[in-house]
Structure formats: structure tokens, C-alpha cells
């Protein structure tokens, strides 16, 4: 295993020398997700906890009128997104933002598109309480689930305590933490360092990603995100101020999290509000240097990509698609 990893690092080093920006590809690759998924001290990952969390995640009893569950807006078949611009919550109410995908959140430092939640276990309170999403709140969620003896039994097995806010938040957190995408063609390349896994267009797309396209300036590392927040000039004036809602700092106006590009070909529509429907349109936005906004990131500038180059970039982005969830496979 060590030799394999050492070999991998050497390949990455060579790769970095070849393309000037490639050093931004991190060497933090969990080959064995079970061994490498980080988990807090009070929520070590176990099979019983994942099972319980998965059940709660899919339970519509967690919404006020029992019409939606977490899974209603995070469908496994499309990388835990929902294919609509803005999701619909209870009573047909529109939410506020596009549903983000849930892959590889175990490696993310904070949560929501504005970073307002500091742990996976805490972020569940966001949709659970929001009157435009599930509208229930943790107090009522506990009251509902504690009436179900099978939940009580699962809680005792998983956490040695009755079902309560701790068990609900921890088990859902445990389940989400194990949603790992690491079997894309891109991963084969990262692990082997062998670019022959790519066809010509994919290979050229990677070069553009690292070079002329400048994508790697923000979409770096194994999960193709620097976990930062950027204003990409989507609007001249943002209705949703994004990160500034959290920091109350105008310098963060219109900034949203740089999303992971894992499975990006399956997570349309794009942007924080789902306002761009296709990957082609996303690339067009960046190719013209975005729109005008006083706070636009200086990383966004006219790229001058040809139509053919944009197609090659998309060919590379499609190599980021994984087909299975490694973390809870078999559970």
C-alpha cells in the first residue's frame, strides 16, 4: 500500500512539473474510504449508524406534512441533487437555493452554499427547520420518531441510547459522511498517473482545465474545489447575498461556495440558484469573463476558448462522473 501511494505521489509530482498549475491537485486521496473518512469523536462510522441515518434520510415523517424527506431533494440517481433550479418544500413552497450534491461532504470544512453550517451533524437543522423546506424542527422530529419502536431499537443498537436529537443528527451525519464518489475515470488517472485512461478530447480537456481555462484556480484538489467562496459575476446585483449573509461583510457579497465538480455532468442545473441549465452554458458564462459585478473575483476573466475547446473541456468534466457510492456499498 505504501509503495503504491509513494508511486502515486511521484506521478503527481511529475504531472505537476508538466503543467504549471498541477501542484493544486492535492495528494490527499483516500484509497480506502472506510479508513480515511474523517469522523468526529462522538460519531465514529459504523454500519448500524449508517443504516439508521439512511432510514431517517428517506423518511417523510421528518417534514411537517409528511410529504417530503431529505431524499426528495437529494436523489441518489442524480448525485443527490434534484434536477430543478430551486427545490419545492412542504405545501408547494419554493426553497431558496439549488439543492447541492452530497458527495464527499466528509472532506468539506463547512456546509451550505454560504458556509453557514460548521458540521455535517448541525447542517441537518437547516432544511429540517426551514418553513420553505421540511418545516418541522428537531423537537417535533424527535417526538415523531420516538413513537416508533423500530427506531428506538435501531438507536439503541447504533448509539446505546433512545432516539433523540443527538441520534437523529449523528446518524444522518454518519450516512452523509459515507457518500463517497471515488470511482470516476479521473480517479483511475489520479491513482495510476496514466493519462492513457483518457481519450484525446478528455486529455486536451484536462490541459485546458489546468491551463487556458483557468478552472483549476478554484477547482483544485481531489474533489476539484478549494472549498472557498467566490463571486463569479452571475448578476450585476445579487438578490441572494450569499456568503455576506453569514459574515455580514460586504466584501463577501455575491460569493458562494466553489462547488466540487465530482459528477458535475449529472448535477444540472447549475449555480447557487440553478439559473444555468447546461454545462455548455456554464462554460459560455466563464468564457466571456462572467457578467458585471462590483465584487467579481479577479480570477474570472475572458478566456477566449473556442467552441471545440469547450467541447474538450466538457469531455474532461464527464470523466469526473462516478458510478457507485463507495462508502456505504452493500449496506
Amino acid at each position: 500500500m505504501l509503495c503504491k501511494r509513494a508511486g502515486f505521489f511521484i506521478v503527481i509530482t511529475i504531472f505537476s512539473l508538466f503543467w504549471s498549475c498541477a501542484e493544486k491537485i492535492s495528494s490527499k486521496i483516500p484509497f480506502d474510504p472506510w479508513e480515511h473518512i474523517p469522523a468526529p469523536a462522538d460519531n465514529a462510522i459504523t454500519e448500524d449508524r449508517i443504516k439508521l441515518g439512511k432510514r431517517i434520510f428517506n423518511d417523510k415523517a421528518l417534514s411537517l406534512d409528511s410529504t417530503i424527506s431529505c431524499a426528495s431533494c437529494h436523489l441518489e440517481s442524480i448525485a443527490f441533487t434534484d434536477s430543478v433550479s430551486i427545490h419545492t418544500g412542504i405545501k408547494g413552497r419554493k426553497g431558496h437555493r439549488n439543492s447541492p450534491d452530497l458527495f464527499n461532504l466528509a472532506f468539506q470544512p463547512n456546509f451550505f452554499r454560504d458556509g453557514g453550517a460548521r458540521t455535517i451533524e448541525l447542517q441537518i437543522l437547516g432544511p429540517l427547520q426551514d418553513s420553505n423546506e421540511m418545516g418541522l424542527g428537531m423537537v417535533e422530529a424527535v417526538r415523531r420518531l420516538e413513537l416508533d419502536s423500530s427506531y428506538q431499537e435501531m438507536a439503541r443498537v447504533a448509539y446505546e441510547r433512545p432516539i433523540d436529537a443527538f441520534v437523529i443528527s449523528r446518524s444522518v451525519g454518519c450516512y452523509i459522511r459515507t457518500l463517497i464518489s471515488r470511482d470516476a475515470l479521473y480517479d483511475s488517472f489520479l491513482e495510476s498517473g496514466d493519462s492513457s485512461v483518457f481519450n484525446v478530447d478528455q486529455k486536451e480537456g484536462l490541459k485546458l482545465f489546468m491551463g487556458k481555462g483557468g478552472c483549476v484556480n478554484c477547482h483544485s484538489g481531489v474533489d476539484l474545489t478549494n472549498y472557498g467562496f467566490e463571486n463569479i459575476g452571475l448578476y450585476e446585483e445579487y438578490v441572494d447575498s450569499g456568503r455576506a449573509r453569514i459574515t455580514l461583510d460586504s466584501k463577501d457579497d455575491g460569493k458562494f461556495r466553489v462547488p466540487s465538480l465530482r459528477n458535475v455532468s449529472r448535477t444540472a442545473p447549475y449555480m447557487h440558484d440553478g439559473s444555468i441549465k447546461t454545462l455548455e452554458k456554464v462554460l459560455e458564462h466563464y468564457n466571456i469573463g462572467g457578467g458585471n459585478n462590483w465584487n467579481k473575483s479577479d480570477k474570472i476573466s475572458n478566456l477566449g476558448l473556442t467552441e471545440h475547446e469547450m467541447k474538450q473541456l466538457i469531455a474532461f468534466l464527464e470523466t469526473l462522473t462516478g458510478n457507485k457510492l463507495i462508502g456505504y456499498e452493500g449496506i
Binding site: 454560504d114 437543522l125 429540517l128 426551514d130
Partner: peptide, 8 residues
């Protein structure tokens, strides 16, 4: 609720 779900 006495705890914000969004800006926690």
C-alpha cells in the same frame, strides 16, 4: 426554534 439552521 431558538437556534438558526442557516447561519448557525
Amino acid at each position: 426554534n431558538m437556534y438558526w439552521g442557516w447561519n448557525q
